[in-house]
């Protein structure tokens, strides 16, 4: 029994090394000669084209905003699918949460976490951060609620339907902003050229649609991730089913 296992491992090792060797062969390292191609345009044109200070955010939400729509849709698909997989009418009440002290301090912390998350979302075009990151932070509130108060409390505070609504309207908002560009005669997801104000670089209100799209993505990701976590935790806690897998 022992030797076939080892043989398997050896084979796996050999395959991995062979693939790694080929990948290493394929790497091209040419001496650096300055940034060329589209990247150069992004670096030098962001201020003029979009008014955003964060070049990465400008790429994500303006130049290549369509990618971001797709990426947000992947999350949306996953959330929808996990909810579909674990479709259940009613969940039973399970854990009762942690001690009173923890619950109280959590209650004190929640506003700050939310504030922090919002700032990440809203300032996405100025500093590192943005809708995805802020949304994820916002979703941690759900996770903390589940851990500290028990999942049923969390569901009572923010019902799944509300999350569903936030998530879908976020996604819808993204598409509608994109369509504005189309309606004004430009292309889908046109930003400044469609008449959105460029603002002054470095200010909160700048970058045209970028902050709006950040908020849309933030809604989508925040609500989506918390639904995701909630669905999975519910099924793990459900006593009618067998125990969760041991890792």
């Amino acid at each position: 029994m022992k030797s076939p296992r080892n043989l398997q491992r050896l084979g796996a090792l050999a395959l991995s090394l062979a693939l790694g060797w080929w990948l290493w062969q394929g790497v091209t390292i040419s001496p650096f000669q300055g940034i060329t191609g589209p990247a150069a345009r992004y670096i030098h044109g962001t201020a003029r084209d979009t008014g955003a200070a964060n070049v990465v955010a400008a790429i994500l939400f303006d130049y290549r905003g369509f990618d971001t729509l797709g990426e947000a849709s992947v999350i949306y698909t996953t959330v929808c699918g996990v909810a579909l997989l674990f479709a259940k009418r009613r969940y039973r009440r399970s854990s009762h949460g942690l001690s009173f002290i923890v619950k109280r301090s959590m209650a004190l912390l929640v506003p700050f976490i939310l504030l922090y998350a919002s700032s990440i979302i809203v300032m996405g075009h100025l500093s590192p951060g943005g809708g995805f990151q802020g949304g994820s932070v916002m979703a941690t509130v759900t996770i903390l609620f589940c851990v500290i108060y028990g999942s049923s409390f969390e569901a009572a505070r923010v019902s799944p339907k509300v999350k569903e609504t936030i998530e879908s309207s976020g996604a819808l908002l993204f598409v509608l902003i994109g369509l504005v560009g189309l309606v004004t005669g430009g292309a889908f997801l046109t930003n400044i050229a469609a008449g959105f104000p460029r603002g002054t670089m470095g200010q909160l209100f700048s970058g045209g649609t970028i902050p709006l799209l950040n908020i849309a993505v933030g809604m989508k990701v925040g609500a989506g991730l918390s639904t995701l976590f909630y669905s999975m935790v519910k099924i793990l806690e459900d006593p009618t089913e067998s125990s969760p897998p041991e890792v």
Partner: peptide
């Protein structure tokens, strides 16, 4: 007609069906 509409239309459907479910 802008080609993007062929992509956006099903997206719109996917994003609004949950809203119909809620409301």
């Amino acid at each position: 007609m802008n080609p993007v509409l062929a992509i956006v239309a099903p997206f719109l459907a996917a994003f609004t069906i949950p809203l119909f479910f809620v409301f």
